[in-house]
Simulated scan of single mutants.
Amino acid sequence: MNSTWKRIFNIIQKPERLIIGLMSGTSMDGLDIALCGVSGSGTDTSVRLIEFKTADYTNEFKAEIKSIFSRRDADLQMVCLMNEKVALLHAEMILEAIAEWGQQPEDIDVIASHGQTIFHAPHSLHGLSNYPNATLQIGDGDHIAVKTGIVTIADFRQKHIAAGGEGAPLAVYGDYLLFSKKGEDRIMLNIGGIANFTYLPGSNDATKVFSTDVGPGNTLMDQFVQKHYEGLYYDENASIASAGAVNPALLKELLQSEFLEADFPKTTGPELFNLEYLIAAQSRSGTLLLPKEDVMATLCRFSAQVIVAAVERCFERDKTPSIFISGGGMHNPLLLRQLKEKLSNASFHSTDDLEINPDAKEAVLFAILANETLVGEDVDFGSREGVPSVRMGKICLP
């Protein structure tokens, strides 16, 4: 047997696999690196979060990604170059983390790499009748595998699209395997650049589980801060938004999007919710000269309102779901306060209550997806559009 495949066969036979999950989101703050011990598969999956860190990106590197991020006119040569550069930097960060944790590369069984999304183009966004759903993540898995010497599973979203999905969100799979609880309706709410959640019914019926994007989380606020406040990448502690007042006219126009009315599940990105979207809403509402603090306050309320509306579509007003929050938006006190005020019947928790660091959750979920690629059997999520019953990821060999 080929020695590399023999190695993979041995990994599959282990009672617990050491898998490093990676996540770099649309906020582009850095690379989340989660070292997980994963045993079992399917609904018998068990995970230990052994180590976690976020390796920060330099401002120069962020600027390089932003030069091709969510741009229809991106330089094709730069896309090619950054596909390799992102992978090499991620590999370097992984090796540094492994050393920092007192491990050796040969101790790690698998790397699960999400890559860096630079463009997301489901049919619902591009609207071109002769073209399919599409998405593009850069950070080539082969480069990571070769530089680290570790088997790498990457490019998860393409299989989802090939099987009939939109390539996002993928949290439904890991959320169901790890966090479902008999007798308790749960919402696993992730507030990243885009806010999304997974609905986990207390019945534990996989055919009723779904995951959906709901609209902007941090992306509009982050983009506005980065344009108008030199040296800042986000509104820390909501200090800017808290100094402003919500403008009802602007908020009304921000809410005028067909996406927000579309049925679940659905997916979106900064390709729709960007500064052009904001400027168009300001033009329609006559608020182009609105103080920056008021714009930020309104953007924060906008994010809160779309999340609230989406949750309320899942539950009657007298229901009391448990909402478990993760992602960068959980650190925005103004946003959280508005969610809790509007969803007063819900109980709010951090995924810390489920023994998963909320900042590590998405990286952990990709470790779970990689484990399913290696040892998982079929899990039936029903025949609903957008939630194919599929295992994902391409195996890249060192």
Rank of each mutant, 00 (worst) to 15 (best):
F179T: 06
D155T: 08
D175K: 05
D175V: 03
Y176D: 12
D140E: 15
I111V: 12
P105S: 11
D107I: 06
Q137L: 10
H114G: 09
N130L: 12
I161P: 07
A163H: 07
A163I: 10
R157N: 14
T135C: 10
A112E: 03
E106D: 13
Q116K: 09
G102K: 10
S129D: 13
E184R: 12
P122V: 10
A154T: 08
H120I: 04
A112Y: 02
P105R: 04
D142R: 14
I161L: 08
K182A: 12
A112R: 03
G174F: 00
R157T: 15
L125N: 12
G174T: 01
I108Q: 00
N133M: 13
I108L: 01
I138V: 14
Y131S: 14
F156K: 11
I108G: 01
Q103T: 02
G102F: 07
L177C: 08
S129T: 14
G174H: 00
Q116L: 09
H114C: 12
A163P: 10
A99H: 06
R186K: 15
S113F: 01
L136F: 13
A163T: 08
D109E: 06
A134D: 12
V146K: 15
F156N: 10
F156I: 09
P105K: 07
P132F: 04
A121M: 15
D175F: 02
G183L: 02
P105Q: 05
A154N: 11
K159C: 03
G139R: 09
P122L: 11
G183D: 04
P132S: 15
L170Y: 00
G174R: 01
K181C: 05
Q137E: 05
Q104C: 11
W101M: 12
I111L: 01
G141M: 07
V172G: 07
F179S: 02
F179A: 06
H114L: 10
N130P: 00
A171K: 02
Q116E: 07
T135M: 11
S113V: 05
G115S: 08
W101C: 13
H160A: 03
K182V: 06
G115V: 09
A163L: 07
L136P: 02
K182D: 06
L177Y: 04
E100I: 00
K147D: 14
L136I: 13
T135F: 09
K147C: 08
K181V: 05
H114R: 11
L177F: 10
I138M: 09
R186P: 03
R186Q: 14
A121K: 13
Q158C: 05
G183H: 04
H126S: 11
K147W: 06
I153D: 07
G102E: 11
R186D: 08
Y173N: 10
S124T: 14
E184N: 06
G127Q: 13
L170Q: 01
S180Y: 10
N130T: 14
S124C: 11
E184D: 09
L128E: 14
H123A: 14
K181S: 08
K159W: 03
N133I: 12
A121N: 11
Q137A: 10
A99I: 01
D109N: 13
Q116M: 07
T135P: 07
A162C: 01
I161A: 03
G183K: 02
I161K: 05
K159T: 12
D155E: 14
P122Q: 09
L128K: 15
K181D: 05
L125I: 15
D142H: 15
A168Q: 04
T117N: 04
E100N: 11
H160V: 01
G167V: 02
D142L: 15
F119V: 15
G167C: 04
E184T: 15
H123T: 14
G183A: 03
